[in-house]
């Protein structure tokens, strides 16, 4: 497909060869989506899948010019991945990735005003990952209850300590069980 057309029109976007997708900055997302929806070459009228991904901060080794290796902190971010298809032309998919600046205050513009089909999927990402979609008409928790405060699909989510007895606990489970039963014994 003429994906070059997107990168030409929007120089801020970047083609990622490894994942076969287009990385779009969140400032340009709505323009790009509007472009692929209405441009006669694409006519992507159907957003199939919207999913969130959590990338934790990590340390990466960078080789300097003199050969010494230094560790650099790479900040973590959240990512929203869109898969677009065209029902009219039966083409697709075009994959867009939109990254947030950080994991603390993640904001991505909502594409729900353009595609109704993204409404519940964006709500789900808000619920499970905590990405806030600006311009979403009804951004509430969808799967968990309203009083819930965590974002459980994030990689660093700590689940509540309600682990129960297991015949052969090991590793993490054993640590958890020990902690659980010691606190339980203290209460009773």
């Amino acid at each position: 497909m003429k994906l070059d057309l997107i990168t030409q029109n929007f120089p801020t976007t970047k083609w990622d060869e490894a994942t076969q997708s287009l990385i779009v900055p969140h400032t340009d997302l709505l323009n790009v989506v509007d472009f692929i929806k209405n441009n006669p070459g694409f006519e992507m009228d159907y957003v199939s899948n919207v999913s969130g991904v959590d990338w934790l901060p990590k340390k990466e080794k960078v080789k300097a010019a003199d050969g010494t290796e230094t560790e650099v902190d790479k900040p973590g971010f959240l990512e929203v991945v869109y898969h677009f298809y065209s029902m009219k032309n039966r083409t697709g998919p075009i994959t867009l990735r939109c990254r947030t600046e950080n994991r603390e205050n993640p904001i991505v513009p909502s594409i729900t005003p353009l595609y109704r089909g993204a409404e519940f999927q964006e709500r789900e990402i808000y619920d499970l990952y905590g990405v806030r979609f600006s311009g979403h008409p009804d951004l509430r928790r969808i799967l968990m209850w309203d009083e819930f405060q965590d974002f459980p699909m994030r990689k660093d989510y700590q689940e509540p300590d309600d682990y129960e007895w297991e015949p052969t606990p090991h590793d993490e489970v054993l640590e958890k069980a020990k902690h659980h039963y010691s606190s339980d014994a203290a209460k009773s």
């Binding site: 009228d45 199939s48 595609y115």
Partner: peptide
């Protein structure tokens, strides 16, 4: 139109007349 815009698929979409 509404069926396509809201990403409806399967028999529901085809009942609305979209050949997909």
């Amino acid at each position: 139109e509404l069926a396509i815009a809201s990403s409806v698929t399967g028999p529901m979409l085809r009942a609305s007349g979209v050949d997909y």
